[in-house]
Design a protein around this nucleic acid. Sequence first.
DNA 1: ACCTGAACACCGTTCAAGT
DNA 2: ACCTGAACACCGTTCAAGT
Lengths: 226, 226
Amino acid sequence: MARPTTPSGRTGRPRRTSREQILTAARRLIDADGWEKLTIRRLAAELGVGAPTLYHHVRDKDDLLLQLLNEHTSRIERPPLPADPGARIMVAATTMHDVLAAWPWAAEVLTSDGFVGLLDEPSLWMVEAIVSGAIDSGATPEQAVDVFRGIWCFTVGEVLVRAHTDRQRAAVDRYLDLTGFDPGSLPTLAAIAEHWPGLAARDIYPDGLRALIDGLLAPPGAAGDS
Amino acid sequence: MARPTTPSGRTGRPRRTSREQILTAARRLIDADGWEKLTIRRLAAELGVGAPTLYHHVRDKDDLLLQLLNEHTSRIERPPLPADPGARIMVAATTMHDVLAAWPWAAEVLTSDGFVGLLDEPSLWMVEAIVSGAIDSGATPEQAVDVFRGIWCFTVGEVLVRAHTDRQRAAVDRYLDLTGFDPGSLPTLAAIAEHWPGLAARDIYPDGLRALIDGLLAPPGAAGDS
DNA sequence: ACCTGAACACCGTTCAAGT
DNA sequence: ACCTGAACACCGTTCAAGT
């Protein structure tokens, strides 16, 4: 009746594949070939096990991506947060942006799989910093949540758009001659067409972020028309 | 040597499958089962032809999606554009947003497949309206393109985030107890946790858009600190 | 308890062959 | 010119069977 035991106190056949090995191998595959190429079958092959084995460690592929994402965000170093509420929001949002921009697949997972609710504690400090910064600036809870959600949408959108624009610039050239705008119906685009590629390479995140924060925190009615 | 001809003047075997039929059937499948379920094979089955047949009418699946998207945007009715530049930007951007929000898969195609460069003329009037509105407000070409790109990122992000939040609210509940924030490390989130679902249901697009426009068009240095 | 091979129900795409 | 069946090289996931 002596059951086989492992150092960790579990019973049964000792595991050959750990959660840690799986996540490490998955990161390796993503970094090498891009996140579209991460499949259960390739990951299993990389680990030298059969594909069904992985289902003992993850519920399904979405669960794997979520674990990967949480592991990734738990690694990021937490910058010092300024006391000034506006600056605090900028720092937290920029950190959020940089994390996603460095690993754009994370943004795809986050939009294709749900929302911030899927993240665990180690990454929620960024949400906390933004919401508390808004409230310390005099915002109501309603406004504070609006500020966070506005920043979140802008951040996710910027990361996704830029990631794909970079990757598929060749495809764009194939479809559209940027100098081919009809000056009759599209006069402004025709006039600036040749400069567009250069202009579109500029980083718009900081200015857009500042505009959103200023505009969403301003007392209602105080905008623009002074 | 008499070659078979069709009414359209082409030669060879008369086609049984038209571009129009393909796009109509594709729309039907998307509306019925969602855009994730649109596959070449299902579409061919819906049309009663073999899957390889479709490759005579589309280059590949991306090309099919692009044709679908261009057909969709060519249908939208063009609202009257106000003379006031700021109002013109609002109207064009809101139209862009509403089109995407009504058919969120379009936003996914646009981010997963490239950029505005993939669209053809019938949808470029929205880009023209935004860029010209910015220039008429006194912006430089650089600023005008920044305004458009900022609006574009915000719009795409909002549509994608909202589409998935709606669809997967159940999944979120499964993972995260919204009332479970640690008041020690996340005091603000813990305080507003129970109100979050209600607050997050608000439509942030109009306010965010206004904030972006005002902030990006403001002369540099004039922001916030008055 | 963990791992396996085989199978199920799919994909997008290519290609030689038919009409 | 258009359409076909068969095939290629994949997917995620399940399940009975082994150790």
